[in-house]
Design a protein around this nucleic acid. Structure first.
Length: 288
DNA sequence: GACACGTGGTC
DNA sequence: TGACCAAGTGT
């Protein structure tokens, strides 16, 4: 095994958290749903939503048989509700193009709605045990520090994929463990703020620690302010249609108290454009 | 490649 | 308190 995997894989096997999707036989559908929910969303918030989702829709075909509105409602306040819509579309595609079986091939996975480079590889590796590099935000930070000696990623995604490929052990099971181990290290030890280097299994080989944990020029974009944003307005519109009266809402009655009229209309238009809501005459509702 | 996209927790 | 952060994707 490459040197880093020699230290990291045993650490992972000893310390891995007991997460639902790591249970034996969790299944490719469970893995796929978990990966959709985990996109930009912390583990602790995902777990209860995931279990409720899989209890209601234990297969892609079960989800595909219900209207997208039900997926958006079940998604509740998890955030980025487009993911609920995309997950529903992916379930329909899996039913129609893959006989209801989550595909194993990375390119077939990439062709599904809402699945990008990370999720496709994550499903192939964690659900099916295949050997590919899996690179998420945690992996990028770990590589930046341990390999490149930088505080923050800064490098192109493409290069991190190659870097991770070079770190994978030959053995398929070890390679999958290495992918998970790198992500886990980034989540619990090599965190974005206040990394716990004294507990790190890679503390003797980490380039960043050896260099005295230098600050790196921060190339990250600042997250836009949420308060007063279009995103907040979209969230308010969708929340009303999702959680409000069962009857469809008249367009003028949707978030009627919203202070910025133009912003409210913009939010409705963009939700219509995304397919997250539909117009039915004078009324607005979730998509059927 | 930059940007838009939710929501809630943390320091 | 407010800015940062969180298993990304599509345009």
């Amino acid at each position: 095994m490459p040197a880093l995997a020699d230290a990291l894989v045993p650490w992972f096997r000893a310390h891995a958290r007991d997460l639902p999707w790591r249970r034996p036989g969790y299944g490719a559908w469970g893995t796929l749903v978990s990966e959709f929910m985990l996109q930009q969303t912390p583990v602790a918030r995902v777990i209860p939503h995931l279990e409720a989702w899989l209890a209601r829709w234990p297969t892609p075909a079960a989800l595909a048989a219900d209207p997208p509105a039900e997926a958006v409602r079940q998604w509740a306040n998890l955030g980025y509700p487009r993911r609920a819509l995309w997950l529903h579309r992916a379930a329909v595609e899996i039913r129609d193009r893959h006989a209801g079986v989550v595909p194993r091939d990375v390119d077939a996975l990439l062709a599904l709605t809402g699945i990008g480079d990370y999720t496709a590889r994550a499903v192939a590796v964690f659900a099916y045990g295949d050997r590919h590099p899996v690179v998420d935000t945690n992996t990028r930070r770990v590589i930046a520090r341990v390999v490149d000696g930088r505080a923050q990623p800064g490098t192109p995604h493409r290069r991190d994929l190659a870097a991770m490929a070079a770190l994978l052990p030959e053995d398929v099971a070890d390679a999958a463990a290495m992918n998970a181990a790198t992500m886990e290290l980034g989540q619990v030890i090599c965190t974005a703020r206040a990394p716990r280097c004294d507990e790190c299994p890679l503390r003797d080989t980490c380039a960043w620690l050896a260099a005295g944990r230098p600050e790196t020029e921060d190339t990250r974009r600042r997250q836009a302010r949420y308060e007063g944003s279009d995103r907040q307005a979209r969230g308010a519109v969708l929340r009303q249609l999702r959680d409000g009266d069962p009857a469809p809402a008249l367009q003028d009655a949707v978030i009627a108290e919203w202070p910025d009229r133009a912003q409210r209309d913009r939010a409705i238009l963009s939700l219509l454009s995304d397919g997250l809501i539909e117009a039915d005459g004078e009324t607005l509702r979730l998509p059927r």
